[in-house]
């Protein structure tokens, strides 16, 4: 188990290094730099930018260095927490990313919890009431949940929330708490603003996980050990929850690796629509402005989030399944 963990951790580090390279190349390679955008900005303000200035700026930012040199420069600082400077916003990347990445983590985790808490009972209900009317309804909802793009759901729910319930969307705090120090009331207020985006982000995964759960449970319910459990005289509820669900969770945890990317993608796009102060809006803005260090760092962090999520999924699997644990 310890060696398993060490192997996984090592592999994780290697993966992250490769991801940092790929992100760097992907974002750095295309022609045009943030400097051009910056110069454009200066010129549009009527400032006269001489070629000397351009040159000195280029030197300062290492614009004309070969790519491996730039990568090394960036990554060797990055391990100390210095991810470079945002050209566009004139701030260190680390200060821009700090609070936003925590919001992203929080939102994704909450959405994941929401998805699991809904998907498992609904999937179990659907599988144990196969071909009943609720089962059909749940199945239809699953298909729709996967088919509706997250941003659309965000728009529509935002529409409903503001139209019918008068909820403010796109903000995290009500007015009276906006600059207030942290308190229990402020936390509640935050949660009351966050549930909507969390539900939207989680919908896709919920639908998908419900489907996986239903199919797994149907599979497991046909297994011999479920009949064994019944033949002991256990009640159907104990048979389902103690013997079947436990085994059906296994593929569900394995599917975590597949849901996490979708979850993080969803978080990014929903935050853009709802204009939440998470990574999403800033990331897309950075891409459009060719603010490369900011964009690379975001992509790297989102990937790390995913890699860590996968590691946790592996650990959960080991905890769940003695066959993995005792290997």
């Amino acid at each position: 188990m310890i060696t398993f963990l060490i192997r996984r951790l090592l592999f994780m580090v290697v993966t992250v290094i490769f991801i940092s390279m790929i992100s760097f190349v992907l974002i750095e390679l295309p022609p045009g730099s943030a400097l051009d955008a910056k110069l454009q900005q200066f010129r549009s303000r009527g400032l006269n930018v001489t070629s000397d200035v351009v040159k000195s700026l280029e030197e300062r930012y290492g614009i004309n260095d070969p790519i491996y040199k730039k990568y090394w420069k960036w990554i060797s600082h990055a391990v100390y927490g210095d991810f470079g400077q945002s050209f566009y916003l004139d701030q260190p990347v680390s200060s821009l990313i700090g609070s936003r990445i925590w919001f992203s983590i929080g939102m994704s985790t909450a959405a994941l919890l929401f998805a699991w808490l809904v998907a498992i009972p609904v999937g179990v209900y659907s599988a144990t009431h196969r071909n009943s009317l609720p089962d059909y309804l749940i199945t239809v909802m699953q298909f729709l949940g996967v088919a509706i793009p997250e941003f659309l759901l965000a728009i529509v729910l935002m529409f409903i929330a503001s139209w019918y319930f008068g909820v403010e969307v796109g903000v995290l705090y009500s007015k009276q708490y906006r600059d207030a120090p942290w308190s229990f009331g402020k936390l509640l207020d935050l949660l009351s603003h966050l549930w909507l985006p969390v539900v939207v982000i989680g919908t896709h995964s919920t639908a998908w996980l419900t489907r996986v759960m239903r199919a797994n449970l149907l599979d497991v319910m046909g297994a011999q050990y479920v009949q064994t459990a019944r033949s002991k005289g256990l009640g159907e509820r104990a048979v389902v929850w103690k013997h079947a669900v436990r085994n059906a969770l296994h593929p569900l945890v394995m599917a975590l690796g597949a849901t996490l990317p979708a979850l993080i993608s969803g978080e990014v796009i929903v935050s853009i629509v709802l204009n939440l102060p998470t990574t999403g809006p800033l990331y897309v803005q950075a891409l459009i402005n060719k603010d490369m260090y900011l964009a690379i760092t975001f992509l790297l962090f989102l990937s790390i989030l995913l890699v860590v999520g996968n590691l946790l999924a592996d650990l959960a699997l080991a905890w769940l399944d003695p066959r993995v644990r005792l290997e």
């Binding site: 295309p30 993080i264 990937s303």
Partner: peptide, 14 residues
Amino acid sequence: SMPTLPLWAAIAAA
């Protein structure tokens, strides 16, 4: 191990 949409967006932005 890279999130799908941000990855797509990064390439498309180029």
